[in-house]
Structures are given as C-alpha cells and as structure tokens.
Design a protein around this nucleic acid. Structure first.
Ligand SMILES: [Mn+2]
Ligand SMILES: [Mn+2]
Ligand SMILES: [Zn+2]
Ligand SMILES: [Zn+2]
Lengths: 147, 147
DNA sequence: CATCTATTAATAATTGTTCTCTTTTTATTT
DNA sequence: AAATAAAAAGAGAACAATTATTAATAGATG
C-alpha cells in the first residue's frame, strides 16, 4: 500500500472518530490541500477539482473546509486579500504574502523566536485573554513580481 | 492651544504636504481612530460619527481610511472576522483578537522577540521576497467572553 | 433491505467593499 | 470677495466572498 493511500486512510479514521461522514468530496478537498504548497483558497480548490468532480459546487467546498477546520485537519490563513486560504499543515508556522499578486508561501528554516510557553502565559496575564493560537504574517513582493 | 488641537494641526500639515486636501470628514475619521483603543472597523467609525456628521456616508469612510493608510497615518488590521479594522498607532505591535466577540486589543509590555533587522534579511534570502511589513496576531477568548 | 439522517447541489440571500455618477467643497487665482 | 479648476463627498448600484435555504441523494445503522 502506498504512503499516499495510508495517509488518506488515516484521515478517514479521524473523521469517523468524530462522527463525521466520510464522503468523496471531503476526501478530495483534503487531498488537494495535502498535496499543495500554495495555500489555495476556496475558488482555487474548486477549479482544481472541477475536471475530476464536475458536479461539485462551491458551497460544498465552503462547508467542507469549515468541517476540516473544526476537526483540526486544516487551518485557515487570512492575509487580507479578500478570500481565505487554507493549509493542511496545521503546525504553527509563519507565512509570507505578496502584496502584488497575493501569493502565499511558507517560511522555512528561519529561527523565529516568539511564541514559547512562557510568552503565552505572559500574554494571558497581561491581557486577561485565554490564548488559543497565533499567526505571524510577513508581507512583501515575491520573486515573480520583481519583474 | 490644547495638545489635542496641536495634534490635529500636525495631521493637516501631513496631508497638505502630500497634496491631499484637508476636509472635515478626514479630520473626523482620523480623530476617531486617534482617540480610540478598540481598533474600530468602518462600520464602527460610521456609527461613532453619525451623531455629529449625519450626512457622512459609508463610502466616504472607506475612501478616507484608504487615504489615511496610503499616507501612513494609520494601519489596517485583519484578524479574519470579515471586516478590516484600523489603528492610528502605526508602530509594529502585536494584537490579540477574541474569537468569540471579535474584540481586538493591543498587547503591551510583552517582550516579543521576532522581527529584528537580521531576521528580515534572513527571510528575504530564504524566500526571495522583499519584506515590507509584518503582523503578529494572537487569538483567544477575551475576559468579557469568559462569562 | 428499509429507514433515518447527514450531506450534497443548486439557488437565493447576505455582507463587506468598491464603483459610478452627480453635487459640493476646497484651494487657488482673479 | 468672486471665479475657477480640481478634488472630495454623498447616494446608490454593482460586486465578490460567503452563508443560508431547500429539495434531492447517499452513508450509516439495525
Ligand atoms: Mn503554510
Ligand atoms: Mn493596535
Ligand atoms: Zn507576487
Ligand atoms: Zn470576547
């Protein structure tokens, strides 16, 4: 059995364990996210799936990403470009977005200090909030947009 | 002359120096932002100004915040709640947003390490982007929403 | 297999934001 | 103090992303 198939089997387990039905649409949307590095938004997922699933509707993708998010299989990114992007990598990692074309990339292998346990505690004490998650975004011009 | 009036005179200078006309609406919108700590969105600014400026339209506020942003007098925050919030404090400081009620607060007096000059350079080398700005958001439950 | 219920697809409705057009205001020049 | 040109404001339509509604369909369960 291929690694890819194994991954998908695991996702099925996760969904079933949460009493959420496993459907072809959900597997397909998750698969797109898992196999992409470009943090697609709903419309990009829609267009990607169109050839293989011509009947799938935009509303289904909206609902599916909501379900996958609730279950913790994906996270959403909002860089302020108007639409929400999604990421199957649910670890807390920084992103950089191009203010020209909207492209969103991961920032790898850069030692970004913040966000340890002590910091969280400190913020909770100072603000009175209970901290649940964080997002660090950088903005700039991507290589492609540098003419 | 009061401090408050002095501030506003300075804003007039900034606008005039950029060949941007000084209007009551612009001064009013800026004043709301300068005198608030809750990072209001367009609708909150609109409602705040309604009593004193009953004729002011939403479109005017949208246009005004865009102008103030371009001139560098305010910055925008996007916590993913659907609408954009604005902040007359243009320094690079972290925010925390309530995932329950949407409230957005500053995080003061917490030593958050990232984002020095070397880090920016490192990110630019690793990603090929030109980095222009950054945003650090924390998300959680605010004191009020803890019942 | 039969039933029950969650999910889908299609469509309509909503919401935040932008655009277009006309009128008014501002800054500048008589 | 007019007159003028340019910029901005106001009203409302238009737009795009998202959400809600509804009727049909497909998984799960016994
Ligand atoms: Mn990512
Ligand atoms: Mn702030
Ligand atoms: Zn780009
Ligand atoms: Zn709250």
């Amino acid at each position: 059995m291929l690694k890819e198939e194994l991954k998908m089997k695991n996702i099925e387990q996760v969904l079933r364990s949460k009493k959420i039905k496993v459907t072809p649409q959900r597997m397909a949307v998750y698969s797109v996210l898992k196999n992409s590095t470009n943090h697609p938004n709903v419309d990009m997922i829609y267009k990607k799936l169109k050839p293989e699933y011509p009947a799938m509707s935009l509303a289904t993708i909206y609902k599916t990403v909501e379900v996958l998010k609730q279950v913790g299989l994906i996270q959403e990114l909002n860089t302020g470009e108007g639409s929400i992007r999604y990421d199957a990598n649910t670890s807390n990692h920084p992103h950089i977005a191009c203010i020209e074309c909207g492209r969103v990339d991961d920032i790898h292998d850069v030692n970004i200090p913040p966000c340890g346990g002590e910091l969280k505690t400190e913020i909770e004490e100072k603000t009175g909030y209970t901290v649940q998650k964080q997002q660090l975004y950088f903005f700039g011009i991507c290589p492609d947009c540098h003419k």
